[in-house]
Amino acid sequence: MEMIRKIGNMGINFMKSVFQFLLFLIQTIHNWFAPPYYPKVFLRNVIEIGFYSLPVVSLTALFAGMVLALQSYSGFSSFSAEGAVATVVEIAITRELGPVFAGLMVAGRIGATMAASIGTMKVTEQIDALKTLSMNPFKYIISPRVLAGVVVMPLLVLIADIIGIFGGFIVSVNELGFNPYVYIKDTYNSMQWIDAVVGIAKGATFGAIITSMGCYYGYYTEGGADGVGKATTNAVVYSSILILIFNYILTAVFF
């Protein structure tokens, strides 16, 4: 009986959290369309999410492309299909690894930062101070951050795609003896417009997930330093899980 009650309570709490998150999301999106706007806050977050994430996203994509080239070569060479390496690298990077790795890296960097900074604002009454200064925290803190994530992530994914393909190119040409001209031609021939669409769609979705989870857990932080720590962990863990789930959903949609 006790067990059933516990499971029931867990279910109710889960549904409450989902409902609370949906309301949070509606309020966030509503404020995208309701003036006044704070372009400086938006631009600051574009730089924070986009520009400062470039090194970590680029490095991850570069090595992902390099590893992919090596592994696909070792697999394909056993049945003399080495020529497919460029195609596999291109498809795998643009459709899957570029968006997912960029998403996970940004989740670790930005999701955690947002949850920690907004959580600290919450526990030190800075959010309350905003309200007493007649400022809607959604308008000033949440909405610009989430919008910046949605706008910037597709660009980051695009850059990750280019660098990932370049990583595959370096390894294929320098280590595996591919002709650079042929490799580039193969890569170009295997490219389809849908690859870019998938990348942009995944980037925008992951950007929304990362920033909304970071803001949500930060905004509902309770307690002191311990609460901020929990919010940060939850933001990173749940945005990573959601990135993988939505990656599958979007792949299935565009399959």
Partner: peptide
């Protein structure tokens, strides 16, 4: 506010 609640950024 009790602890000032200044915006630290």
């Amino acid at each position: 506010f009790q602890n000032g609640a200044l915006f630290d950024s």
